[in-house]
């Protein structure tokens, strides 16, 4: 670890904090079919980690293991260990609802609730009992919209439906909703694939700011996006984690030929 810190500074990168998520020997099965094989990975705190790889490589499956979204699929079985700040997230005694508050998620297609902008944010804190008074809740809603860079754009129509916003605004609303439950980790599954370049840039700028306080994992098909936003990149292929490293190293000098072939567009 010491060595890694020195190396990152030597190449002009900021030193990474210790891992907040530690996955060991993770295997995932959908019925008889194995989707992930022995995945070991450390995800550093307050940094952006990108998961890349061709469709069906297991990157989204692995992402969904991190907040136990796979529990909702009856035939899905997960083995191995995933620790979040030292706590085993597959511990049978663990409250999954609480876990999902700590590990928020943003999806490919913006999916605001069919409610007002205000209610989209207020819903989570309310059911988790994070605020005591209406005033506190109002403040929290404003804070989250502010952090998501959306407050200016929506402050005069807080009680209009969230679905009336543009695609990019809806996605930032979903990010605001994710941070409303004060998570430690935000998972993003292709958050910009339905957005135009301007909306994408706004989400990327937002990610940059959010990483000061949150650990972010993004699954993306855009190599350029992974290169732009992340500090760590992990490459998945055929259900295996092939290589994980500093983003700069992965995109200038990957160690594994499969990584190189994928990011340079040589996959047959």
């Amino acid at each position: 670890m010491e060595h890694q810190v020195v190396h990152r500074e030597a190449i002009g990168a900021e030193p990474l904090q210790p891992a907040t998520i530690i996955a060991r020997n993770v295997n995932v099965f959908y019925g008889a079919k194995q989707a992930l094989f022995n995945v070991d990975v450390d995800v550093p705190r307050n940094a952006i980690t990108a998961f890349i790889g061709p469709s069906g490589c297991g990157k989204s499956t692995f992402l969904r293991c991190l907040n136990r979204m796979n529990d909702t699929i009856p035939i899905c079985k997960v083995t191995g260990k995933i620790m979040l700040d030292g706590q085993d997230i597959y511990d049978p005694d663990l409250d999954v609802v609480e876990l999902r508050a700590r590990v928020g998620m943003v999806f490919q297609k913006p999916n605001p609730f069919p409610k007002s902008i205000y209610e989209n944010i207020a819903y989570g804190p309310r059911i988790h009992g994070l605020t005591r008074t209406k005033k506190e809740l109002d403040e929290l809603v404003e804070q989250c919209l502010e952090k998501a860079g959306l407050l200016k754009e929506v402050h005069d129509r807080m009680h209009e439906p969230g679905t009336g916003l543009s695609g990019g605004q809806q996605q930032r609303l979903c990010i605001a909703r994710a941070i409303a439950t004060r998570p430690d980790v935000i998972l993003m599954d292709e958050p910009c694939s339905a957005l135009d370049p301007i909306a994408t840039a706004k989400v990327e700028e937002l990610m940059d700011e959010l990483k000061e306080n949150y650990t972010i994992i993004i699954v993306t098909h855009s190599m350029q996006q992974a290169a732009r936003v992340s500090q760590r990149t992990a490459f998945f292929h055929l259900g295996k984690l092939v290589e994980v490293g500093d983003t700069r190293q992965i995109f200038t000098n990957p160690r594994d030929k499969r990584t190189q072939d994928y990011i340079t567009g040589r996959f047959g």
Binding site: Q224, F251, T252, N253, Q260, I263, T264
Partner: peptide, 9 residues
Amino acid sequence: RQPLADDLR
């Protein structure tokens, strides 16, 4: 093309 890895080099 936004070359990467060995292509970038």
